[in-house]
Amino acid sequence: MSCTGAARQPGGMNTATPRLSARGLVKRFGSTTALAGVDVDLHDGESLAVMGPSGSGKSTLLHCLAGILPPDSGSVALDGRPVGGLSDRERSLLRRQRYGFVFQFGQLLSELPAIENVALPAMLLGTSRRDATELAGRWLASLGLAGMEGRRPGELSGGQAQRVAVARALITGPAVVFADEPTGALDQATGHDVMRILTETTKAAGASLVVVTHDSQVADWCDRRIEVRDGLVVGATAEVPR
């Protein structure tokens, strides 16, 4: 049994092809069923909060949607094209080219200054170091980090580091940004600031956003939310009031 999380269209059907679509996702780890048949749709420029208690399967859902884990059964499609049959290498390429990631902490390389952390994904896609650095500088400035380009992650506050992570996730112009507990290591005020920047910048860049969180105040920043329990979507809301 599954419950669809697609509910963007209050008062009517959304007929456009979803940017990201999952059907009947099942994922098991040994005898533990992490996902028991999940359907999710995510549309262009939409932000979706995936909520649920610890161990509910929300991070596994994010990993399956992002092509990090292949589901045992079910399908995931990006722009209508199934990505389930891709090899590990192809999924890695997909993540590099079409997705951006913001994690709770630790995604920044400790030996690189902020500007090179942001520039790296662009360089991985073939942009020259000079152009990637210039672009990264613009991203950092637009997120209020001008003057901090040369700082290492350890020399940034938690909120500043997450803003660098947002810039890093968006520099390649991804179709979807995945954020796993992006405010989990921050205080409430800084967390709200990061969520504001994450949602606004992602929307402005034309990307969709999936945020995994257990905090309903964080989820409030997203267009809608789904609730995952025991590997199933047990609740979905349309257009969370802002």
Binding site: I68, R89, S92, L93, L94, R95, R96, Q97, Y99, G100, F101, F103, G106, Q107, L109, S110, P121, L124
Partner: peptide
Amino acid sequence: RREIALQNLAGMPVEL
């Protein structure tokens, strides 16, 4: 290990 794994998760190829 954590740093390496997160880079790979974000699409950095193992070969790199």
